[in-house]
């Protein structure tokens, strides 16, 4: 599905990705973890072609990412921070994205799912952070693509919505999709992830299941296992 070879990226003097290799062929949920600045978002944006890597190749479903755009038809992406054109109304935004994609969408179902009906006629500027995140989720999930990339999907959500999101992700997984997630909420990751990819200093430090992580670090609990990796490397 996703094949990344020897990926390099610098922002000025700061090396963010430093020869990263990653193959994702399985279906299910893959969590991309790492400390702040480890290159998670850069990696994801490279996949989407938003960041242009200095070196290395990325292929998604057999198609090269560099200078191509058509492959994005089969990706649903949830950006980390929901930036929207502020003077649009929610339903205008949804209509616009549908128009741009030119694809069938299940927006009504999702709006109902996240209880967004009362906000449809409001301008995006006037929405709370949580509501914006819900709009963000609707836009992401409405196209039913085989690859879903979620950058911090939980941010700003209230507990009820968080539960709904968890359900939604499980539903999508059940449909046989590949879902990439980054998140800071370890309990959420532990619960949903089939596989953990841990980034450190622009490379993959660990790639395996949650239980493999626990055994390799010798920590019984997921959060401590992660913390262990970090302290070990900083020490």
């Amino acid at each position: 599905m996703v094949s990344i070879k020897n990926l390099h990226k610098k922002f000025g003097a700061l090396v963010v990705l430093n020869g990263l290799d990653l193959e994702i062929n399985q279906k299910g949920i893959i969590a991309i973890l790492g400390p702040n600045g480890s290159g998670k978002t850069t990696l994801i944006k490279s996949l989407l072609g938003m960041v242009v890597p200095a070196k290395g190749d990325i292929e998604i479903a057999g198609e090269k990412v560099k200078d191509h755009w058509n492959y994005r038809k089969d990706i649903d992406y949830l950006p980390q921070i929901a930036h929207f054109p502020g003077n649009l109304k929610v339903n205008e935004l949804i209509r616009m994205i549908k128009d741009l994609r030119g694809k069938d969408a299940r927006d009504k179902e999702l709006i109902e799912f996240f209880k967004l009906e009362p906000f449809l006629d409001k301008k995006l500027n006037n929405l709370s952070g949580g509501s914006k995140q819900k709009v963000n989720l609707v836009l992401c999930f409405m196209f039913d693509s085989p690859l879903i990339i979620l950058d911090e999907p939980t941010s700003g959500l209230d507990p009820v919505s968080l539960l709904r999101l968890r359900d939604l992700i499980q539903q999508e997984k059940a449909k046989g999709k590949t879902i990439l997630i980054t998140s800071h909420i370890m309990s959420f990751v532990e619960e949903v992830a089939d596989r953990i990819v841990f980034l450190l200093e622009g490379k993959i430090y660990f790639n395996g299941t949650v239980s493999e992580l626990k055994t390799s670090t010798g920590q019984p609990d997921f959060e401590h296992a992660i913390a262990n990796i970090l302290t070990e490397n900083n020490a």
Binding site: G49, M50, W69, K73, I75, H83, P85, L100
Partner: peptide, 10 residues
């Protein structure tokens, strides 16, 4: 913001 939104689209 609009640009970023569009960039993730095909």
């Amino acid at each position: 913001e609009f640009t970023e939104l569009l960039l993730a689209q095909p």
